[in-house]
Design a protein around this nucleic acid. Sequence first.
DNA 1: AGTCGATGCAACTCAACGGTTGCACACCCG
DNA 2: CGGGTGTGCAACCGTTGAGTTGCATCGACT
Lengths: 120, 120
Amino acid sequence: MTAPALPVMCAALGDATRWEILTRLGEEPMSASALARVLPVSRQAIGKHLEVLRAVGLVESEQRGREVVHLAVGARLGVLARELDRIGRSWETRLLRIKELAERPDSGAAGEGTGGRSHD
Amino acid sequence: MTAPALPVMCAALGDATRWEILTRLGEEPMSASALARVLPVSRQAIGKHLEVLRAVGLVESEQRGREVVHLAVGARLGVLARELDRIGRSWETRLLRIKELAERPDSGAAGEGTGGRSHD
DNA sequence: AGTCGATGCAACTCAACGGTTGCACACCCG
DNA sequence: CGGGTGTGCAACCGTTGAGTTGCATCGACT
């Protein structure tokens, strides 16, 4: 699937080291070993992070000679951003509607038992 | 602080249960106990998640009588979304520039020094 | 008043995750 | 050709985090 679930995408972005990697790869494509040289973690750790990032499409890898260079995919981040924005807006809308209902007791307040428990 | 670090925000969103909670709270404000009734986890677990979400500003809580109702803050999600989009675009731009340089070795490859550069 | 339900705090379990080390193998350069 | 470098796989470890249970408390509604 080209569109991983939101929690998975966010989880991939929920690690500082991964952001560090993404930042570097966003500036310039490079190999895992190269990343390990500039970051304070081992090459293997970098490798695991790259696998996670590649799994959600935030990183793409390309075999160049004997090396494998990785690069950050900004488009995927953009997709995530739009999704989050959409959801956020929907929340705002709902809350707005709720507040309006609360302030205008005449608009469809039927079926609301006074002093009784509606649910369970 | 009103703007938690990106990794922290994403980490908060990197959990399926938390998304479940946010979804419900986005539809309708409710208490931890109420959430525990509709979700397959204990009230205490819900409480911990709410604390995490509140810590990054994705949830706000209001004491209503003896209950504490929580609600999802869409605006905060929007802020995150804009941030991610910005970063994603910057990645795309860099890559584009790199590709151009690779294909046009004559286009001002000498001195760089453009002012006002501020990467993360 | 009495009870039921909501909350808060604390201790504990268990799995996932980040990170490391070690090793084997492939490839490029000198 | 040989060493050095880049990579992949696997075992291992410490910590974090999600989730649970238990207990004590406080407030609301009957």
